[in-house]
């Protein structure tokens, strides 16, 4: 089966991104496909490369980046939600006149159309949030 995954809560504060991660790992192990994960609301904050959790804790962004690389998962951060929350890639930072960008490797910023498209193209859409 082909799953689309939505993460709609921020990392560390809320378990949604962890549960989504474990779901995707398990789904892939069971032979399913997960072509895309869409990060919305505070979920966009998962994609910052500037997060530095204590060394004895999981690094949520690095977990996603590694998983995406291994399985060619498209990690999409919603641009509208990202801009509100200070999540910028290089292009957006320069377009908005900001002096920094913070998107982690393996993530990309794109529009809400990617969420709808994922709903159309997958067999099941799973939302991990509140």
């Amino acid at each position: 089966m082909k799953f689309g995954v939505v993460v709609s809560e921020g990392p560390y504060t809320h378990q949604a991104s962890d549960t989504a991660y474990h779901f995707v790992v398990s789904a892939l192990e069971a032979g399913h496909e997960v072509p895309r994960v869409f990060f919305y609301h505070d979920g966009v904050n998962v994609g910052t490369r500037l997060s530095v959790p204590p060394q004895d804790e999981r690094n949520i962004q690095e977990q996603w980046t590694a998983l995406a690389k291994e399985h060619e998962i498209d990690l999409v951060i919603c641009i509208a939600a990202a801009q509100r929350r200070g999540m910028l890639d290089e292009n957006e930072a320069s377009r908005q006149g900001k002096d920094a960008n913070n998107i982690a490797d393996g993530f990309r910023i794109s529009g809400l159309g990617q969420l709808i498209e994922m709903g159309i193209q997958t067999d099941r859409l799973m939302t991990f949030g509140d």
């Binding site: 509208a80 529009g111 809400l112 159309g113 969420l115 709808i116 498209e117 709903g119 159309i120």
Partner: peptide
């Protein structure tokens, strides 16, 4: 915002 963008997809 999702509803408004999604409307363009004719679902």
């Amino acid at each position: 915002e999702v509803v408004l963008i999604g409307a363009a997809f004719d679902q």
